[in-house]
Design a protein around this nucleic acid. Structure first.
Lengths: 144, 144
DNA sequence: ACACCAGGTGGACGACATCGACCGGGCGCT
DNA sequence: AGCGCCCGGTCGATGTCGTCCACCTGGTGT
């Protein structure tokens, strides 16, 4: 994981469709060498997968909210219960007054309310506090 | 934006490296037709870009925190000020007691503290409340 | 000083993206 | 209702690119 690897990852974050020849040229390597390094980055799990960034509003998820979930029980083993709610994009166990922080995307605020209802149905959940996003300044890849 | 488009996007979210032939087969179309639909999805901005998902811990961003930023002024035009802090991965204007919610990734808690210091330096920022993530259950693509 | 090896180069081969010519079915117009 | 237009599809040709391999080189440890 040297500077060249970091440059490769940065390039792929910008555009994963870039050719290995272009990738190599960008970091001063041949196409074959660039290919080999990227292969190893995948193998090591540094690169998890190559995916596509979607405009949430265009696919019917115009409403974004963060929900602090309070609990009266140990939530460490409840990942599956949160994953079962399709509208939840992220779920984290947090330090602080609440127990879990989830990121929710829905089409409407009514559907957001429905997600809150389903959150309450999870074992151990004692309360929620939703924060609705008014405007997203930016969302960008993991920093290097 | 019909069911076929949704299926295509779902497939590309899973693996953007999939061939157009495989993509077409998955939705009952020829490679050419699949290619054309994906091209239009990009053109329309439904697909913003094709990128690579990176393991944050592997690139020196093992600490994740959400920070509620309080302000005593209108923050609507301050996107650039937040974008200038490289460790900030997301920044949203929110409804509620705080003004802005930011997602921060750093290597250490010391660096997190430094980010908080730089947040205070932004015009209009009057306070911060950081929530450190202990464990991430999951992070997944925008739901369809 | 020598041998080993991780990591790089360049070329060959096959697969895949990309484009164009052609086709069919749905919709609006007369 | 009939006609023609056009969006969106299939199929096939072409060139680029990913992928693999054989060979090379510079650094490291004994």
């Amino acid at each position: 994981m040297d500077d060249i690897d970091r440059a490769l990852v940065r390039n792929l974050q910008e555009d994963a469709g870039r050719s290995y020849a272009a990738l190599g040229a960008a970091v001063g390597l041949s196409a074959g060498a660039a290919h080999e390094r990227v292969r190893k980055l995948r193998e090591r799990g540094v690169i998890r997968r190559t995916t596509v960034e979607v405009d949430p509003a265009a696919v019917g998820s115009g409403v974004l909210a963060y929900v602090m979930v309070d609990a009266n029980a140990w939530m460490g083993d409840s990942a599956a219960a949160f994953a079962a709610i399709a509208e939840i994009q992220e779920a984290h166990v947090i330090a602080g007054s609440a127990s879990v922080l989830v990121k929710v995307r829905t089409a409407t605020t009514e559907q957001l309310q429905d997600v809150l209802r389903r959150l309450y149905a999870i074992d151990g959940v004692s309360g929620t506090q939703a924060t609705v996003v008014l405007e997203t300044f930016f969302e960008r890849p993991v920093p290097l």
